[in-house]
Nucleic acid binder design. Structure first.
Lengths: 345, 345
DNA sequence: TTGAAAGCGCTAACAT
DNA sequence: ATGTTAGCGCTTTCAA
């Protein structure tokens, strides 16, 4: 009896050599295989020895070495979450929400989350993570038009789930129904009597923005109003462009400015303030995406609310299903909610 | 010649069996050891064979299996980043900033980042991550008074770095100099003629808030003004408490409300708006921590700016030093900056 | 029901 | 300068 109670007394808790499956086998007079089976529950094993092993494990707080398991099974029990790093720190509430969601569900399902950063045109860190075998699958948190990540992961046949939408049906997707949401919010605004809506939209290489624009157009169609394209501004990638759009809009007769997301919206609000326009007195504002950035805004902003954490949770769940069973639902839509606030009252 | 060009032609790129160090050894007529040495650069090896090996690796895009390396070296090349998961805190951009910073520096130093979530009174996921041997060290992003994480990591002798401050000198710390910053900002306000400052402070179990309060008091001392404790509100853990404090303050004669952080500040602004008070006309506002939450605020808010990403980068660097060399600087302070804005003009 | 042995891909003494 | 060998701790045939 080399190891046992005496050892615990002898050496401090801290220096305690890690217990291995081998130690347990020797101690219990069984083989590694049996211990392994008792732990995994796979394979035939008598109830009595399984009990014996489990009791031992409890008592001595044995934790299997996940690395060794990884090597043997060629599986890491990690999933990667890819965040865009060129995003303004300000737009991060969305990505962080996703991340938290994925973390929560992963820990429940006994996976860990490895984070990596990419840029629109540089996915080298994602490539490295995959090639280093650090993860069993990946959650992408942003959908681009010609997405390098999607292309890469498909080629490498790595299981992955996209938070967002992609026209390729083979891609497992989790998203909120942007088109429906934006259509609905646009409708609500039109029906409230705001018939001249300006639309300010961000980077059109982001699929989500394409969808928002489409929703905007559909809202008009449904209500048989005509869109005035002269007050529609797409692909506004910088603050300056947003500012200019606002300036142009305020020269015209416009009832309400509809923004594709929280970032554009907060920029619009700031510009309006600079120019001394008051919301909602001089102009109304709505946003197709709410976030903490807007949540405490004064006045509160009419917007579409999406439960980002829910997106993350769902994506994580789908990914792990995909990893473990090889298949999962191909597209999941999470709910949105329309928040009518002071900015349009 | 089992493996080689013919294989690549035969089977698709995707199904290509992973190249191992063994394959290379056979192919080149060398031993595993030599290949290993050529790759790591450790041990004596002739320049010519190192070249030969490296050429082969380049050509066939060999990537070592990190898991196998991990097992052999008992090292994961992962570092853990611990984020608080309490709901309102997840909204705070501070933690994401830290995370991004750690990710950036880690990837440069060839580590990956595993994220885990804890609560003030539940560090079970951190424990699991450690016990599963998933990481070589940990970055903590929040300092508490009696910190379970710190206690746990010390006991287990896991290398870790704390973003924040801790009275225990043995803890490696990276922080901005909150006391000095808050002292300075308080001074500036007092010298601007705002002699009656209210102070609204968050959870006093967070060491950072203790330090901010101390800075506030020191600012008063330095200027030989007397603090009016009746307009100091500590440990405001909920919105309701903040609202009440604001209500109480507005009954009194107060020049400026100083908030311990961005979250409290945005709540204060929102409450003031509800009550129809205007900033800076009716009351002035300053915050001891700036963030994107406040950045686009109207009016802009006087505050202390901290480069969070820098905190993350520094913490990551220190941690990896600690992991690799066993020692590092015990305390690093990053710079802060005072932003004087409209809210106090 | 249990065990022996090979192997996952790499590292590191210890030869040669 | 290079090779041999024995692990790292676990899973998984295949046998008993």
């Amino acid at each position: 009896m080399i190891r046992g109670v005496r050892m615990d007394e002898f050496i401090g808790k801290n220096t305690q050599k890690k217990l291995t499956i081998n130690d347990i086998a020797k101690e219990l007079g069984l083989s590694k295989t049996t211990i392994s089976r008792a732990i995994s529950g796979k394979g035939r094993i008598s109830e009595s020895t399984r009990q014996r092993v489990n009791d031992y494990i409890k008592e001595y707080k044995y934790r299997p070495n996940v690395i060794a398991k990884s090597l043997a099974k060629s599986k890491t029990y990690n999933i990667g979450v890819v965040l865009p790093s060129e995003s303004n720190l300000t737009e991060i509430p969305f990505f962080q929400g996703c991340l938290i969601g994925v973390c929560e569900i992963s820990s429940e399902l006994d996976y860990d989350v490895v984070v990596t950063l990419i840029k629109e045109d540089d996915i080298s860190l994602l490539e490295k993570m995959i090639e280093n075998h650090k993860v069993d699958g990946v959650v992408l948190t942003r959908a681009l038009e010609n997405d390098l990540s999607v292309k890469f992961l498909k080629e490498r046949e790595i299981p992955f789930v996209l938070i967002g939408s992609n026209t390729n049906d083979e891609v497992i997707q989790v998203d909120s129904n942007h088109i429906a949401g934006c259509t609905e919010l646009t409708s609500v605004l039109l029906m409230s009597g705001y018939s001249r809506l300006a639309f300010l939209c961000g980077n059109m290489n982001h699929i989500v923005n394409k969808n928002r624009y489409q929703g905007f157009l559909r809202g008009y169609e449904k209500n048989r109003f005509i869109v005035d394209k002269s007050i529609v501004f797409l692909d506004l990638k910088s603050r300056v462009l947003v500012d200019r759009a606002v300036d142009a809009i305020m020269q015209k007769r416009v009832d309400c400015i509809v923004c594709s997301d929280d970032l554009i919206c907060s920029r619009v609000l700031s510009r309006l303030d600079q120019m001394n326009y008051k919301v909602p007195k001089d102009i109304r504002i709505a946003s197709f995406y709410n976030s903490p950035l807007l949540e405490n805004h004064i006045p509160s902003v009419t917007s579409l609310r999406i439960d980002v954490k829910e997106l993350g949770i769902t994506a994580g769940k789908r990914l792990i299903e995909l990893i473990e069973s090889g298949e999962t639902l191909s597209k999941t839509l999470v709910n949105y909610e329309i928040l009518l606030k002071k900015s349009t009252s």
